[in-house]
Design a protein around this nucleic acid. Structure first.
Length: 527
DNA sequence: TTCCGACAGTGGGGTCGCAAT
DNA sequence: ATTGCGACCCCACTATCGGAA
């Protein structure tokens, strides 16, 4: 199949607002792919590359050769070219990668270049991703959507599912059961502003889990083989020997566990997310790679050097010694989990009958320095990949009245509107403002219109990217906590800042001060 | 007819390792 | 040694479509 045909499909999908029409276009393209092109081509239609890492991002896509006049590329040729780019390593790799990228883009027409940029950057923005492609696969292969969805969530691999569905239909899709060793999409949680609202969503009675501010882990064990995956199904086994050791010590032969890994201080209280993240992101030292996956000496060394040690806490069990549990009620899964792992490896959980008890659990979690709670419907199955009402998270929320220092022009559907706000707290010592971060969240289209007009009126410097304004407009900002920052002058940044409302009743002189932000940072609430 | 779930989009701060400077 | 880049961790929120109620 010509690559141009996929580019044309992508353009048509992007120009269509109706989802059924998008699905129809995608299904038609899927049917036109040669069987050998399905793994690469089906991914392209969802905006994904078969090669997860290419070493090419936005910066590499800035200076591209002019497009070709005539289309010549096939899907298979593009896939092979990207394989070549992704394989480049070592000294001189950036120049070599750029060279290969230039050859590929020079052979592509304008439409094809647009698709390639979207694929390499991961921001195709055609209004269709894996979710809609699942429907298109079902349409193209004439199988039920539910069968495609289920295979997708249990296999975690769009291209494999597309290949199976188009090649072998419903029978081939049915082969995608839960398999120990292969990660599945983790169940996700909705969020609620209050404990009461969370309980409304799940119903009572409910169970309340402590929400740990760490890294989500899915641990698979089959005999001596142990693998640890993240929320996005990347494997991090060699980075977390503590987790591997803890699971290796369990009596069960086969397990699929769902949990969170977090660093603790000497008193056993949770470390700030930044420290857990630093530890979890670090590649294993040479002594931990190769050979034995877990070296106890490494763990001991980590403790003596003051290195953060990650502790796993589990809250769900999806498979135990040959039995799949994902369709079993949560209560049964928890009972099986409690029987399979030591109590010290379980997240804190209580059963609650009403909002008052749930409120007490929330307060206790915060008291212990944790991020919040998850309220769960006790009987719900494990809904892989779904963000249903069965799990609802509640976190405390801070608010401050801050001053807008500058605004950035938006992109995509926000093109032409001032979108991303630079936020500052008042500094009583200097009379100026200390920038604490940015936000674009919480803005309705109406607010975008209003603020574009407002900030252009306040503008002192109109750049193509940033518009600097007189620091006069106060905005109420909600956020989860204050974290240490090397980026901002105050050494602090807001975590998950979002707009609540503009405060037209307040002047900048009445805005909250950087001292208040420091107090929150020192208290480390959510930071 | 209205309501609501799922989806896509629009970006945030921080961390690491690697290559280039 | 420092900087830029890519890839990943955590993520909140709004608009839209289309099926469910």
């Amino acid at each position: 199949m010509r690559f141009l045909d996929l580019a044309a499909t992508s353009a048509a999908v992007g120009a269509t607002s109706g989802r059924r029409a998008k699905v129809e276009l995608l299904a038609t393209a899927l049917r036109s792919l040669d069987p050998a092109e399905v793994p690469a081509g089906s991914g392209y239609l969802a905006g994904e590359l078969r090669q997860r890492q290419t070493g090419v991002g936005w910066a590499s896509l800035r200076d591209l050769p002019p497009p070709a006049a005539e289309p010549t590329l096939t899907v298979a040729e593009v896939d092979a070219a990207i394989d070549g780019i992704a394989a480049v390593r070592g000294p001189g790799s950036q120049a070599r990668r750029r060279e290969l990228l230039g050859v590929l883009f020079a052979a592509a027409t304008a439409d094809e270049q647009r698709l390639l940029v979207g694929l390499f950057s991961g921001e195709l923005r055609q209004g269709a991703q894996a979710g809609l492609l699942a429907e298109a696969i079902a349409r193209a292969a004439q199988v039920p959507v539910a069968a495609v969805r289920r295979a997708l969530l249990l296999a975690g691999d769009l291209r494999a599912v597309a290949t199976a569905a188009l090649g072998g239909g419903a029978a081939a899709l049915a082969e995608f059961g839960l398999r120990v060793g292969r990660p599945l999409a983790p169940m996700l949680a909705q969020s609620a502003p209050t404990v009461d609202a969370a309980l409304d969503a799940t119903g009572a009675p409910a169970v309340v889990d402590v929400k740990l501010d760490g890294v989500r882990i899915q641990v698979h064990r089959s005999g001596s083989d142990i693998a640890v995956f993240t929320r996005s199904l990347d494997e991090i086994t060699t980075r977390v020997p503590e987790v591997v050791a803890a699971v290796r010590a369990l009596p069960a032969r086969e397990l699929v566990l769902d949990g969170e890994a977090i660093g603790l201080d000497a008193a056993g209280r949770p470390l700030p997310f930044q420290q857990t993240s630093s530890r979890a992101a670090r590649r294993a030292t040479p002594s931990t790679t190769g050979g034995t996956p877990v070296a106890p000496a490494v763990l001991a060394a980590a403790e003596t050097t003051g290195e953060t040690v990650l502790t796993p806490y589990f809250f769900d069990l999806l498979h135990l010694d040959g039995v799949d549990l994902i369709d079993r009620p949560g209560r049964e899964r928890w009972a099986a989990l409690a029987g399979a792992v030591d109590e010290s490896l379980l997240v804190g959980r209580v059963e609650v009958d009403d909002a008052e008890q749930a409120g007490e659990a929330f307060a206790a979690a915060l008291d212990a320095g944790q991020e919040g709670i998850l309220v769960k419907a006790p009987e719900a199955p494990y809904d892989a990949g779904r963000r249903g009402a069965a799990w609802v998270k509640v976190k405390p929320r801070h608010t401050l009245d801050l001053v807008v220092l500058a605004v950035e022009w938006g992109s995509g559907r926000r093109q032409g509107w001032l979108s991303n706000l630079h936020l500052g707290a008042r500094d009583p010592r200097t009379g100026g403002f200390v920038m604490l971060g940015k936000t674009f969240k919480g803005l309705t289209d109406e607010l975008l219109r209003w603020q574009t007009e407002r900030f252009l009126a306040l503008a002192v410097e109109r750049g193509d990217w940033v518009v600097r304004v007189r620091p006069e407009q106060v905005v109420e900002i909600a956020f989860d906590g204050v974290q240490t920052s090397s980026r901002y002058p105050g050494g602090m940044a807001l975590r998950f800042a979002r707009v609540v409302r503009y405060r037209e009743d307040k002047t900048a002189a009445e805005a909250d001060t950087v001292d208040m932000v420091r107090a929150i940072h020192a208290g480390r609430a959510g930071g």
